[in-house]
Amino acid sequence: MKDKAVNAGVTAQTGFELQRNCALLLILDDYTSYKDKSFFVCIEHQDDFLFAFTTNDHKTLQEVYTYQSKNKSGSIWTINADFGEIITKILGTGTNLIQDNMSKTNDYKHKLTFVSNTDMSLKYNPNDEEKGEGKEPVSIKVNEMNEIQSFKSLHSDIRNKINSSVKDYCKKNTKKFDEDEFNNLTLQWVDFPKTANKQREALIGLMHSKFPHVVDPKASIELFIELFRNVEQTYNQGDIASLLDESKRLYAEDLKATLDIIEKEQRTYEKWRNHAETFAPTFKIPLLVQESAKDKIRETFEYLKDLNNLDHKKIQKFIYDNDYRAKYYSLVEIFKGYVSEIRESERINLNDIDIFFTCLCVYVEFYDKGNL
């Protein structure tokens, strides 16, 4: 006999992947509107994921966007019992946000979104009595032609039908809901594949289109996913979802720092690629290392982030203290000077190739911050 439970774990994991991937999709797709704001992201906290916009000290809420994300295989969303259950939980999130202990500004507000990569077909069909009263069928779809639909802007008959589905669910399950939260409800369709692997491919494509200067969008997406994974696997403390729980937060600064790392690696790789013909023979860099220069640069930046790598920190400080752009007439002369004088003045347990790549990364970080 077939047992639906055998794939429950796989199904749950796919759902978790969708939550995280969908959050990343929304950030990358509209990064220009996020990048200058103070906010943090939470996964599996109050709702599937949320964006909390705060004052600069992250202590006071100004606005919260919550998202309930759902896959639906082989069909579309309609106004039925399942839909009523989902909307009930989303409305409950609004109530929980109001009751959350985190401080709020006087003009605080929140938006509650049901987001899915499956079409939504919202229909109202009048019965015979209603037809006699002049009622007519009403239908609206949330899909690629109509991606975002606020509850307030829906036809009144569709609003009433959704309201009834919520009331039916609450009656059967002895639940309560705040009807005012309907005013904060939004339905959203996203152009996103069903499987986690395809979702990653879509994110890589989005990274390429939104950040065309990034040479390795795949590695960049993996870096972001790892960043999200750190908070999505953190338990809500005391089994209570509180926005004051800092362990569940991924700050805007973390996202910006990740993009900064990606862009620094890209600028460094471009600098290497543009001057490899002179750098390689000057510093006797073997062909094998040349061919893997991108990995070498990424590895070097990782070493520079680690405070325990004292040799890399010594080189970083030396270059910060010594700007050779006014001393030498070409990049190759600058790096020859750095490698030679660092070797003479510092006790460094790195070979000349590693010193060169560290100098290259640090030079770009400190002195070459222009556009690619």
Rank of each mutant, 00 (worst) to 15 (best):
Y67M: 03
D119R: 14
N71W: 07
K172G: 13
Y320K: 03
M207Q: 03
K313L: 10
K35I: 12
S150M: 01
M102K: 13
G205M: 08
E144F: 14
K72D: 02
T258A: 02
V138G: 01
S242F: 14
D352I: 01
F301D: 00
F301Q: 04
T105Y: 04
Y65A: 02
K198H: 11
T174N: 13
G74L: 06
A257N: 14
E232H: 07
G238K: 09
K218W: 04
F16P: 02
D168N: 15
T118G: 03
H208T: 09
F279Q: 10
F224V: 15
L97S: 03
E270K: 14
K123R: 09
K109S: 13
F279L: 14
V362C: 11
I43T: 00
E365F: 12
D57V: 03
K152Q: 11
L112Y: 10
E299C: 02
L360T: 14
D368H: 13
R347Q: 05
S209T: 05
I285R: 06
K248I: 00
Y169C: 05
F335T: 06
S153F: 06
N173E: 10
N173I: 02
K305F: 07
N309Y: 15
S340K: 15
P286W: 05
I79R: 09
S33G: 06
D239E: 10
I348R: 09
D306R: 03
L331A: 13
L227S: 08
V41C: 04
V231E: 10
E181Q: 13
R20H: 01
I158M: 02
K284W: 01
E341D: 14
F357D: 03
I86S: 05
S345R: 07
F40N: 02
Y269T: 05
T88S: 15
D306L: 03
Q233L: 14
P193Y: 08
A326H: 15
C22W: 01
S220Q: 00
Y367W: 09
D352Y: 08
K70W: 08
T60N: 04
E263P: 07
K4C: 08
Y34M: 02
K171D: 12
K167A: 10
L227I: 02
N236E: 03
S164H: 14
F301M: 01
K172Y: 13
Y169I: 03
N101D: 12
N80D: 15
F224N: 03
K104I: 05
Y329N: 14
D82N: 14
N117A: 11
Y328E: 10
K104G: 04
Y67D: 07
K210G: 00
N80T: 13
N7W: 05
K305E: 12
D254W: 12
L97R: 00
K271R: 15
I90M: 04
I221T: 08
I348P: 04
N71I: 07
K175F: 06
Y251M: 08
I27E: 01
A81Q: 15
A196M: 05
E270C: 15
L50P: 02
V364K: 03
L350S: 04
H45T: 08
C361H: 06
G92C: 09
I76R: 00
T14A: 12
M102F: 02
F335D: 06
L91Y: 02
L360W: 08
T174M: 11
N230P: 01
V362A: 10
C170P: 05
F49M: 07
S209C: 07
E144V: 13
S209P: 00
A219D: 13
F335Q: 12
N160E: 14
D254N: 14
Y269K: 06
